[in-house]
Amino acid sequence: MTHPDKSARPCALEHSPKKRQILAGAREVFGEMGFERTSVDQVAARAGVSKATVYNHFLDKKTLFVACFSEEADELRDALRCKLLRSEPAGEIGPALQAVGEHLVSLVLAPAIVALYRNTSAEIDRFPELGALLYERGPAAMHAAMAEYLRRWHDLGALNLPDVHAAGVQFFLLCKGDLAVRSQFGVLPDPLEPAIVATVQRAVHVFLAAYGTPSPRPAAAQD
Rank of each mutant, 00 (worst) to 15 (best):
Q42C: 01
H103V: 00
R202D: 12
V181I: 12
L84G: 03
L76R: 09
S183F: 05
A220T: 13
G48Y: 11
L97T: 04
Q222P: 08
Y211G: 06
H165W: 10
G157Y: 05
A112E: 15
E71N: 13
W153T: 01
A220I: 09
R27A: 11
D5R: 11
G31F: 02
A52C: 03
L84Q: 01
V114S: 02
L161K: 05
A180R: 12
G131Y: 09
R126H: 10
L80Q: 08
P218C: 09
R27E: 12
K51R: 15
Q42W: 09
L179Q: 02
H57L: 08
E123K: 07
V40S: 10
A67N: 14
A166P: 07
T53W: 07
R217G: 09
G31N: 03
E88I: 06
L104I: 01
Q170K: 09
R37V: 00
A219N: 05
F127Y: 05
H165M: 13
S121F: 10
E32V: 13
P89Y: 04
D223K: 07
L23P: 01
P194Q: 11
G25T: 02
E148H: 07
V204F: 05
L159K: 06
Y135S: 07
R81Q: 12
S7H: 13
L80H: 02
R81D: 09
G25N: 11
A219C: 11
D78F: 12
L179R: 03
A115F: 02
L174A: 10
G25M: 00
F127L: 05
L156C: 01
H165G: 08
Q201L: 10
V49K: 08
Y117P: 06
R81T: 13
Y135Q: 12
S121K: 09
L173V: 10
E72R: 14
V204P: 00
A12G: 10
D178T: 14
L59V: 14
P89N: 08
F171H: 10
P95W: 05
A195N: 03
G168Y: 01
G186S: 07
I22K: 10
A219D: 14
A158L: 11
F207S: 01
V100S: 00
I113W: 08
M33P: 04
E92F: 03
A158Y: 10
A158G: 12
P128A: 03
S106T: 07
A221L: 14
P89D: 03
D178G: 14
L174Y: 14
L159R: 04
I196K: 08
D155A: 10
K61C: 06
E14P: 03
F69T: 04
A141V: 00
V66N: 02
V100D: 01
P4Y: 09
C82D: 04
A99M: 06
A180M: 06
Q21G: 07
F127G: 00
A209V: 03
P214N: 11
Q184P: 00
G131W: 05
A99Q: 13
L97I: 06
L208Y: 01
S183I: 00
A144E: 13
R152G: 03
I113D: 02
F171T: 01
K6G: 15
D178W: 05
G177H: 12
K61I: 11
F30P: 07
A132V: 12
A210Q: 11
L13A: 15
D190F: 06
V169T: 11
K62L: 04
D74A: 14
A99H: 08
A158Q: 13
V40Y: 03
K6E: 12
G91Q: 04
D78P: 00
S183G: 01
